[in-house]
Each structure stands twice: as structure tokens, then as C-alpha cells.
Amino acid sequence: MSNFSVAFRNADAATILSVCGELDAHTAPELESAIKKCRDEGKINLIINGHDLDYISSAGLGVFMAFIEEIRTLGGDIKICALKSKIFDVFDLLGFPKIYHIVETEEEALSLFERGIQPIQGD
């Protein structure tokens, strides 16, 4: 009874992962394997579109942390966009906006990649 799904979409500058439903300890591995798949295919510019994300738990947040370092080392980034305000609040509480680009729209996120904006942290 998984109420979570990930859909892939390729844009010019990045691969967009649209997440839908509830991202918790049970569904986190799905997003994990989705990001892993992108990484293995060499797609390192990733946008997580959270427009349809209804809930995120700490385990869900952990997925972003698990890959960010590696993706950035490879020269890519994970950017997050279109979060509902309630979900954004969870990201914000933890300080994610200090580490990730979290923007309003997918276009904004794409343009960040297109313009070659560096990830927030230089390391």
C-alpha cells in the first residue's frame, strides 16, 4: 500500500523527479533508488519537484542528505522546488534552505542550472 511515487522527466539542464504522496521511512527507499538510478546514469543535475508531496518525515529528509555530498562532488546538485508551504516549513525548520536551493517553481530551478549557479555550499 504505497502512497508514494516518483516520476522522471528530462529537461535540457536537469532531470526532474516529481514526487507524489507521503515520503516517510517506508517510502524513502523508493526516492533513494530513484536518485541512485539517476546518479548511475550520469544525471547529476536533479530537481525534486515537490508539488504533489503531502508529507515528509525525517527519514524522507534523510534521502536528500544521503546523496547531496556525492552529487556535488561529481559536479551536480539537487534543487528542490514547488513545495507546499507546510512541507517547506519542515525543510525550513531543519535549515535546509541554508544548504539547498529551494525555489518556488520548476522553471526557477531549471534556470539556476542553466545559469550555472553554484550550489549554496562551496565545498
Binding site: 525548520l93 531543519l94 535549515g95 535546509f96 555550499q121
Partner: peptide
């Protein structure tokens, strides 16, 4: 009281202390 601060383990560099 919502003060700034990253979760522990999110950043292993200086950002944690700065924020």
C-alpha cells in the same frame, strides 16, 4: 521561538556554527 540553526549532521563544516 524560532531561532536560526541547522539540524545536527546536515553540515559538517562551518555553516552550522555560522547559522
Amino acid at each position: 521561538l524560532r531561532s536560526g540553526g541547522l539540524g545536527i549532521g546536515l553540515d559538517r563544516g562551518d555553516l552550522f556554527g555560522q547559522t
